[in-house]
């Protein structure tokens, strides 16, 4: 265990714990955007910046990625942190004024959009959570493409792609609502591609695209029920059979 302080509160943490986790476990609030507990770390939004003192050096680090390996003291509310956080929010709200999460954070920290530097409004903050989710699923259908200011998320060639299975993981983890899709009974449209969505013959919900089941390796003759009902049917079958015995 390593002894550290966060905002002068002494804490003991496991070696390798990130500052963010140590803070969260102790009820200390640090705002985040690109971080998602289910995904790999990337550290690109810099909103979770905190100030640390490490062997006499004071510096700003991204708390979501900084592993605690020795005694450090962490401050989450100094003037320098406040400036860092507000600058990040300021830059984001100039380009992403309509993203609800950005609006909320700006309200919380008192940041206003600057008319002079207002950019064409966009919902994407380029945090890449969608890309990491897609990668985690193994489909790798979308990527951050281009570079610099023009960096954005897209499927290959900005066209419909066979790689996408319509699972909606990307849309689910998107913090700003940039990734949208159309869903009508039996149909789903995302990333320029239209999918057929299968209906569960037991409960009636539209539960998965054909491509998702292909990806999961579910046999073609076994696609009548949603996961939930499938489990239910299997357990009923199991119980009846064991009762017979």
């Amino acid at each position: 265990m390593i002894e550290i302080t966060i905002n002068d509160i002494p804490l003991k943490v496991e070696k390798g714990t990130t500052i963010l986790h140590a803070a969260q476990a102790n009820g200390i609030d640090i705002p985040t955007l690109c971080n998602h507990e289910g995904l790999t770390l990337d550290g690109n939004c810099r909103l979770c910046s905190v100030e640390i003192e490490d062997m006499g050096n004071k510096k700003i680090v991204a708390s979501c990625m900084f592993p605690i390996t020795r005694n450090i003291s962490v401050e989450t509310e100094t003037e320098r942190v406040r400036r860092a956080r507000n600058t990040v929010l300021q830059l984001l709200v100039n380009r992403n004024p309509k993203a609800p999460i950005i609006q909320q954070l700006c309200a919380k920290y008192g940041v206003d959009r600057e008319e002079r530097f207002a950019l064409e409004p966009d919902l994407c903050i380029r945090c890449g959570r969608c890309v990491r989710a897609c990668e985690a699923g193994g489909t790798k259908a979308i990527e951050l493409v281009g570079r610099g200011f023009d960096r954005h998320v897209a499927p290959p060639y900005e066209l419909e792609t066979d790689a996408c299975i319509g699972c909606l993981s990307c849309a689910t983890v998107c913090p700003t609502g940039k990734i949208t899709y159309e869903e009508t009974p039996g149909k789903r449209k995302i990333w320029y591609k239209e999918f057929d969505v299968l209906q569960c013959k037991r409960c009636g919900i539209y539960f998965a695209t054909k491509e998702m089941l292909d990806w999961a390796g579910r046999p073609e003759n076994d696609r009548d029920h949603c996961n939930h009902c499938q489990k239910y049917i299997e357990s009923v079958k199991f119980l009846t059979e064991s009762q017979k015995k």
């Binding site: 550290g43 939004c45 830059l91 100039n94 951050l144 570079r147 610099g148």
Partner: peptide, 17 residues
């Protein structure tokens, strides 16, 4: 601005400003 990779907010958006 031309050479920033665009990964992190301060460099991508801040240099633009």
């Amino acid at each position: 601005v031309e050479e920033s990779c665009g990964k992190c907010v301060p460099c991508r958006e801040g240099l633009k400003k």
